[in-house]
């Protein structure tokens, strides 16, 4: 019977092990997470103390009884939009520049671009913390040398910008390398034909470059939106979510609820479920647009 099933669906032989593994690794934990999110479980409790509280944890989140939740949603989305946009634009420009140029510096630029991608984010975050230090950081030192006013990078007004800056540093190269590969693989004859027909630079970009790069642009965008939505390591070491709640992204809010200082695992789980729903909604929307017109 099993044999016949595999005869009928030969692909199952190949994908079954991976699919089974994925189910175990994600389906069960997700169900488990749902269950925890409906309890009042706290870290270190005996199981005897755990009570079922229904949707109370969710109601608490959305009704404003968790004052930082809406802020976390807001700044997570804001962060997602800002960093993705900046990284896509800068990344694309760098990629284009690299593709057009025949400079001998190209291999060096490539090598440099790889460094931020492979650097351990938790360590990179700390280096940024040192560089941005208001008193002995190199960035303020340079500002002082240039007779510019010093900036307290990690205070309430600037912390968000600092995290954005560090994220742009780490992930623009990723987009740049993708765009480079994409732009360079564009067929040149189309451009020549269009130029002969009198198309200007903008038209060329709009009607040739953009459509042919569409899949890649969406690919980069999906990765950047989702990864920036779930960002954790970098702000965790850089700002710990503070000052105030100015950099408390959803992941950090979950951490703050769940870590030993608070240990409110039940509430954190409800928050985690919401983060999962937001990120799958965003990727659903993006993939929908990616597939449309293709």
């Amino acid at each position: 019977m099993i044999k016949r099933y595999f005869k009928k669906k030969p692909y199952m032989t190949y994908i079954a092990p991976a699919m089974a593994l994925m189910t175990v690794l994600t389906l069960f934990p997700t169900i488990f997470l749902w269950l925890i999110s409906m309890t009042n479980y706290q870290l270190g409790w005996d199981l005897g103390r755990v009570k079922f509280v229904g949707l109370d944890n969710y109601i608490r989140l959305v009704s404003g009884r968790d004052p930082d939740f809406w802020n976390a949603v807001y700044i997570s989305l804001k962060f997602m939009v800002i960093t993705t946009a900046a990284e896509m634009i800068f990344g694309f420009l760098i990629g284009k520049l690299l593709c057009d140029s025949e400079s001998r510096m190209k291999p060096i630029v490539f090598a440099v671009l790889i460094i931020p991608i492979v650097m351990t984010p938790s360590i990179a975050g700390n280096i940024w913390k040192l560089m941005l230090n208001a008193e002995y950081g190199i960035v303020n030192y340079f500002l002082a040398v240039l007779h510019l006013p010093r900036v307290t990078w990690l205070d309430a007004d600037m912390a968000f910008t600092s995290v954005v800056l560090a994220d742009i540093w780490q992930w623009t190269p990723f987009v740049a390398l993708i765009s480079y590969a994409g732009v360079c693989s564009l067929p040149t004859d189309q451009y020549e034909a269009a130029r002969i027909d009198g198309g200007n630079a903008f038209q060329l970009f709009r009607y040739i470059t953009l459509p042919s790069l569409r899949p890649l642009i969406f690919l980069a965008m999906i990765f950047r939106t989702i990864d920036s939505l779930k960002i954790y390591d970098m702000p965790f070491v850089l700002t710990q979510g503070g000052p105030g709640n100015s950099t408390e992204f959803l992941s950090l809010h979950i951490y703050r609820l769940a870590n030993a200082q608070n240990g409110l695992i039940g509430r954190a789980a409800a928050n985690a479920i919401i983060l999962m729903m937001i990120s799958s909604a965003v990727s659903k929307v993006l993939t929908y647009f990616q597939r449309k017109e293709m």
Partner: peptide
């Protein structure tokens, strides 16, 4: 498959920890 790559680690680590 792709959406599994997208799971936020911070969300999924709680059940993993308990399991």
């Amino acid at each position: 498959v792709l959406s599994q790559r997208m799971l936020p680690a911070m969300a999924i680590v709680i059940p993993y920890f308990l399991m």
